[in-house]
């Protein structure tokens, strides 16, 4: 088995719009998700995230390219690996007139799991006590939690979550993120698709960034953001401070009333170096790069989170 849990090569999805125009939702995407941890799948709405996930799960056909899950080519060998995969694609989709328990019981039966599994899954997502309410009476957060409970029926090795915190209140978001982190720590590989940069940065160990159906960057979150940190340093004698720091190998740029120091060293080295020369720091503020700046740099796009969702249109 490949060490990669998810692999795509030259994956492409074209569709014809209602006006007959050919549009490309996913453009020759090469995706590689290693086993273990939480992997972010980051891109603005319409970048092709959902379409990619739907192709991986056999819900949409690829126009071109190859895909593999756990080293097995899909969709051909999807039935042999599906029992290892839990997925929530877009919004949760259950029968509205059935209770939460009934919905899960039907899915559990389809994979030969006992009823006790349903109780355990409901317990895990804190829906015990509301399991006999009709699905249509659930809040959005409860629906999301039920969808996650459905994925847990399989005891998945790979969990694919597409925008799982969409529409949730802050408490619900925190709850879902905690659950995802917990699952990642338990050894489940989680592919978290999101257009929320902070979410990926908080929850994920690694990430792939896509835009307009193409892969823009991939790696650990640290790699993507970069290891060096920038500090804003203010002190009485800026010129002397800049010379002192440059002398120990730090990159320093003088601004109007402060210095911008770019270094891999810890901040206490800056204060100690300056203090040794009798220069005392009035302000030292870390200015870390984040995924947002990385993303904007990669795409030159300021439309993050806006614009038409091409990926979703492709599915219709």
């Amino acid at each position: 088995m490949s060490a990669l849990v998810i692999e795509t090569h030259g994956l492409r999805k074209e569709f014809r719009s209602r006006r007959g125009e050919m549009r490309v939702a996913v453009r020759d995407l090469d995706l590689a998700v290693p086993g273990g941890g939480v992997h972010g799948f980051l891109g603005p709405n319409g970048s092709g995230k959902t379409t990619t996930i739907r192709m991986l799960l056999g819900l949409a056909q690829a126009s071109r390219g190859t895909m593999a899950l756990f080293g097995e080519p899909v969709p051909g060998r999807l039935p042999s690996v599906m029992h290892r995969i839990g997925a929530v694609v877009e919004s949760p989709k259950f029968s509205p007139m059935f209770t939460g328990r009934q919905n899960l019981a039907l899915l559990a039966r389809s994979i030969g799991q006992p009823e006790s599994r349903v109780d355990a899954a409901l317990e895990t997502v804190s829906l015990a006590g509301r399991e006999d309410d009709r699905y249509k009476a659930y809040s959005l957060g409860m629906k999301q939690r039920l969808a996650i409970a459905a994925t847990l029926l399989k005891d998945p090795e790979l969990l694919i979550l597409d925008e799982p915190t969409n529409g949730l209140d802050p408490a619900g978001i925190r709850e879902i993120r905690d659950t995802i982190r917990e699952l990642g720590e338990r050894g489940v590989t989680v592919l978290l698709s999101s257009h929320i940069l902070a979410e990926v940065q908080q929850v994920c160990d690694s990430a792939t960034i896509i835009g307009h159906g193409r892969m823009l960057a991939s790696g650990s979150v640290e790699e993507l953001i970069g290891t060096s940190t920038t500090y804003r340093v203010r002190l009485a004698d800026g010129t002397a401070g800049a010379e002192t720091l440059r002398a120990v190998g730090m990159a320093v740029r003088a601004e109007a009333d402060h210095l911008v120091v770019d270094t891999d060293s810890p901040p206490d080295l800056i204060t100690r170096t300056l203090a040794d020369r009798g220069l005392y720091v009035a302000e030292l503020t870390p200015v870390r790069a984040d995924l947002e700046s990385v993303f904007l740099e990669l795409t030159g796009d300021s439309t993050l989170g806006a614009g038409p969702d091409l990926g979703k249109q492709a599915d219709q």
Binding site: L57, G58, L59, P75, L78, P79, M82, I85, A87, V89, S91, P92, K93, F94, S95, P96, N103, L107, S110, I111, A150, K154
Partner: peptide, 18 residues
């Protein structure tokens, strides 16, 4: 029709992809 209208068809296919 209910499976299509509620969208649960895709959910079922995530459990039985054949």
């Amino acid at each position: 029709g209910h499976d299509w209208n509620s969208g649960s068809m895709s959910n079922q296919l995530l459990f039985e992809p054949r």
